[in-house]
């Protein structure tokens, strides 16, 4: 893994060019997302996972090196939710919806193109995240029948609260005037850290992926 980070760093350095017209922009953003879970069916029967919608709220910062390259750093509060359904022959009404909130910190290279006011952006980089809260609601099995549950979950020794991964996407920005602009982002977060720690002799990694659509407004210095 260390080797990969060094390679990535060297490659990013190789892209830098002379800094001209450096410019800061900061702003806020908000939107919706959809999260999916990637896990094997190891040890489980008749479970299916599906995506659920979540929300994003955050701040964004841009630092332009030149007219086509900037660095983009966001700090987002994000709910990353998914649903599990049991499709057993005996009972097909069991399900659980998991709603997890994360603090996400994507750091991305921002390659822009287009006109003076309306510009397109290609964003790519990585992110770090921290799992803040966990909640679930649904119908579970009990000895006396089915049971509706709606509860906050406590983290335990299997919980991996720190996450990291790749972040990439596209964005469209429009400068309203010399100091104010709006942007529309579509970003994809691809976790490379399992949210379940697993065990040395029984590893069961589970990964989240989240697609966000956010509308933002920024102020240029």
């Amino acid at each position: 893994m260390n080797k990969r980070i060094i390679i990535l760093f060297v490659l990013l350095l190789s892209m830098t060019t002379e800094v001209v017209n450096a410019q800061w922009a900061v702003g806020i953003k908000g939107g919706v997302n959809t999260t999916s879970v990637d896990r094997s069916n190891a040890g489980r029967i008749d479970e299916s996972y599906s995506s659920l919608r979540g929300i994003d709220l955050g701040i964004q910062a841009h630092y332009s090196f030149n007219d086509w390259l900037a660095i983009r750093v966001d700090l987002d509060y994000m709910t990353r939710s998914h649903r599990m359904d049991r499709n057993l022959n005996i009972i097909d009404t069991l399900f659980m919806e998991y709603s997890n909130s994360y603090l996400m910190l994507p750091v991305m290279a921002d390659f822009s193109f287009g006109g003076k006011k309306l510009r397109g952006h290609l964003l790519c980089g990585g992110f770090a995240g921290y799992w803040l809260t966990a909640h679930r609601n649904g119908v579970t099995f009990s000895v006396t029948g089915l049971y509706d549950t709606d509860e906050d979950l406590e983290f335990n020794d299997e919980t991996q609260r720190l996450t990291a991964g790749l972040a990439a996407g596209v964005s469209l920005s429009y400068d309203i005037n010399n100091w104010l602009g709006v942007n529309l982002d579509a970003l994809y977060y691809y976790d490379l850290v399992s949210y379940h720690k697993g065990y040395d002799h029984l590893n069961d990694p589970r990964y989240l992926s989240t697609l966000t659509i956010d509308l933002g407004v920024y102020y240029k210095f």
Partner: peptide, 16 residues
């Protein structure tokens, strides 16, 4: 680089 990293997700062990 992105493709390089997408291979970093681990597979689950065998579960009986």
């Amino acid at each position: 680089v992105a493709l390089f990293f997408t291979g970093c997700r681990k597979e689950a062990d065998y579960f009986p």
